[in-house]
Design a protein around this nucleic acid. Structure first.
Lengths: 342, 342
DNA sequence: TATCAAATCCGAAGCGTTTCGGATTATTGG
DNA sequence: CCAATAATCCGAAACGCTTCGGATTTGATA
C-alpha cells in the first residue's frame, strides 16, 4: 500500500505537489504531473479514501438505504437497481454500497448513523412516497441525495423521473378515443408517488372526456402477476359492471390480467383492450404476450446513469437546474387495443 | 455532530480520557466513565468511523462483494443473505455493506480497491467454489474474512458450513436401505464446493452399498423449479433406465420434480421416492408439497449469526479454532419415501 | 532595470480518532 | 515516614490526505 509520501520521496517532491498532481489541480507542471502519475502506477498507489474523507470531507462513497421487507425477497428488481447504480458509480470512480435497515422505522436512524459516522458522501433514495420523510430528513441535514422519482409538489432536490402522469393520461386518452367508456387502472401500492401520479393522469383523461370516475375501476396492489390475476378476476366477474379496457401499471400485472381474461373466456382485444406500462426489466418475463401488448415504454435501466450523474453533481455543488430530469416515455402500439363494443 | 473534543471540553477532561472511557478501557474511573457516557448521549455523539479507521485501522465496516450475474435478478436469496448479515452485523455495532462488481473477473480487483482504499475491515465470502481464488487472494493480503461454506481440503480460515457431504450421504443411504438401487441426484451448478460435497456423500453411500455410479443419474443446474422440472422429465422419460428415487438439492428443484412426475403420471412415493434438502428460505415456496416431502433440513438463516461472530472474531484476532463450525442438519421423515418396487 | 504576474512549488496545519509513554495523585507495606 | 504500587489521568504523535498561505522562479511588461 503505497502512500503519497512514498511517491513524494521517490520523486523528490513534496506530498502537497503529488496530491495536487494526482487530483489534476492547475498549478502543477505538465511534466511533473506525468512523472507523478507514472510513479503512482508503478507503485500501485491507491488513494486511501478514509484519509481523504477525513481531510476533505469527501470519500467518493455513496449509498442506498432500504428497509428490509419480506416482499422484496421475491422481487428481483432490487438487484437490478443496486447493480445498475453500482456500475454507474464505479464508472465515475466512486463506490456505491447498499445498506439494509432492519425495518422501515430504522431507515432515518440509519441515515443518521451513516452520516454522522462520516463515511458516505450522499445517498440515492428510491421508491419515494407521495410525501416522504426521507427527503425532508436529508435536506434538513444538508446531505446530498438524488431521488429516483419525485414527490408531489415542490421538489428542491435532484431527481430523475419518468412522466408517470403523462403516460397514464395518454393510455386512458387513447382508449377513450377508441370508444371505451369504462376503463380500469390496476396500479401499484397506494401512496407511492408514481402510483399517485398515474392515478392523476388517468383521472385527468376521464374528466376531460366528461367520464365519471368509478372507484370500482381503480385497483391498488403489489405489482406482480398474482395481483393482475386476482384484480382481473374481480373486475370482470365481480359485483360491478365490468370495464371494456384496462391499464396495467407494469408487465407482470398485464400478464396476470391476460391469465384472468383467459380463464374467464374473454379475449383481447375483441372483448377487452389492454395497455400496460413496460419498465423493460431484464428477466424471463415479458415478450410472450399474445396478442402482442400495446405499451407505454420507458426502460428502468435508463435511470441509473442520470441518477449517478445528478448525485455527483450535487456533491460537487452544481446548480439544481442541471440535476433534474423527467424522461419521456414511448408509446408502442401493438395488438391489444381495439374499438369498444357497445 | 459532536466530537470527542466537544465532550472533553464540556467535562474538563482530556480527549484521550474521553476516548478511553467510551471504549471501555481499564484505566478510567467508573464515575468518570459514567459522566462521559452521559455527556456523549446528551450531545448525541457518534464516533466518526472515518477518523477511527485512520487512527486504529478499524472502521467497523465489513462487506460482501459479489459479481453481477443476470441469474441473480430472479433469485431472491441475495436479499436474504444481505439482510440477514446486515442485521447481525448491525447488532454488533458494525456496518455491513454490499458491493456489486460488474462481472466475475472484477471481484478480485474490487477487493483490492476496497482494501487499499482502506475503508473495510473484512469481508464475508459466499458461494465458494471447490477451489476458489478469492480466499487465496484475501489470505495473501492478510485481510480478515469469513466463508459461508468452505473449500475442499485445507481450510485455514474462519467458516460456517453445513454438513453437505453428510446430508447427501444419509439421504442416499436411507433410500438404499429402503431397497432403492437407482437413485438420482439433482444437484446445483458444478464446482460449487457444497455441490461437490454432496456429490461426494452420494457417491460414498453408493460405493458402500456396492452400487455402481451412473453419470446419467447425476444432474447439475441452477437450483430452481425449472431445473427440477426439466431434469425430472429427462430422468424419467429419457434415454436411460429411470431411477426409483431422486435426491433434490433444494425445495425448488423438488417442486419441479413433483411437477414433472405429475406430468408423466408417476406418483410419489409409490413410483418414485423423493428426498430434498430444505434450506428453509422465506418466501412463498415450500410447505405445499403433496405428498409431504421428506427432507434434510438446515435453515440458511442460522448461518448469519455465526458468520458475523466469526468475522468479528477474526478481526479481533481470536484463534482460528473458535471461528469454524460445521452445523448439523436434521433429518425429517415425511411421506415421500417408500420401499422400492422391483 | 525595476515591477508585476503567472507558473510552479512547498511547509504546516488540520480532519477526529487512537495509543504510547509518561505524569500525577492516592494507597499500601515495611 | 519512605518507597513501591495501583489508579487515573494527560500531552503529543500518528494515521494519510487535502488545503491554505506563502515562497521561489521565470518571463513579460513598463
Amino acid at each position: 500500500m503505497a502512500t503519497l509520501k512514498d511517491i513524494s520521496r521517490a520523486l523528490n517532491l513534496s506530498v502537497t505537489q503529488v496530491s495536487r498532481a494526482l487530483n489534476d489541480h492547475s498549478d502543477v507542471n505538465e511534466d511533473t504531473r506525468r512523472r507523478v502519475k507514472e510513479a503512482a502506477n508503478l507503485l500501485k498507489y491507491q488513494p486511501n479514501i478514509t484519509a481523504r474523507k477525513l481531510a476533505s470531507g469527501r470519500s467518493g462513497m455513496v449509498g442506498l438505504v432500504v428497509a428490509f421487507n419480506p416482499h422484496m425477497v421475491s422481487d428481483g428488481m432490487w438487484i437490478e437497481v443496486v447493480s445498475g447504480l453500482s456500475a454507474q458509480f464505479s464508472g465515475r470512480g466512486m463506490q456505491f454500497v447498499l445498506h439494509i435497515a432492519p425495518e422501515a422505522d430504522a431507515v432515518l436512524p440509519t441515515y443518521q448513523k451513516l452520516i454522522s459516522a462520516g463515511s458516505l458522501d450522499g445517498f440515492v433514495v428510491v421508491e419515494p412516497w407521495a410525501t416522504d420523510p426521507r427527503m425532508d430528513f436529508l435536506s434538513g441535514l444538508g446531505v446530498p441525495f438524488v431521488v429516483h422519482g419525485r414527490t408531489i409538489g415542490m421538489t428542491d432536490y435532484p431527481f430523475y423521473d419518468i412522466d408517470n402522469q403523462g403516460l397514464a393520461y395518454e393510455s386512458a386518452h387513447r382508449l377513450i378515443a377508441s370508444g371505451h367508456r369504462r376503463i380500469a387502472l390496476i396500479n401499484g401500492v397506494e401512496h407511492r408517488s408514481y402510483v399517485q401520479a398515474r392515478t392523476d393522469g388517468y383521472k385527468k383523461a376521464l374528466s376531460e372526456a366528461r367520464l365519471p370516475f368509478d372507484p370500482f375501476l381503480l385497483r391498488h396492489g403489489v405489482m406482480d402477476a398474482a395481483c393482475g390475476l386476482t384484480q382481473g378476476v374481480r373486475l370482470f366477474s365481480g359485483d360491478g359492471p365490468p370495464p371494456t379496457a384496462v391499464i396495467c401499471a407494469n408487465l407482470l400485472i398485464a400478464k396476470g390480467v391476460y391469465q384472468s381474461l383467459d380463464a374467464l373466456g374473454l379475449s383481447v382485444p375483441s372483448d377487452v383492450s389492454v395497455i400496460a406500462h413496460d419498465d423493460v426489466l431484464t428477466g424471463p418475463l415479458a415478450a410472450a404476450f399474445y396478442p402482442a401488448l400495446t405499451v407505454t415504454r420507458s426502460p428502468l435501466g435508463d435511470a441509473w446513469a442520470p441518477l449517478a450523474r445528478f448525485l455527483s453533481g450535487r456533491i460537487e455543488g452544481k446548480p439544481l437546474a442541471e440535476l433534474q430530469e423527467v424522461a419521456q416515455y414511448e408509446f408502442i402500439e401493438r395488438a391489444s387495443v381495439g374499438k369498444a363494443k357497445d
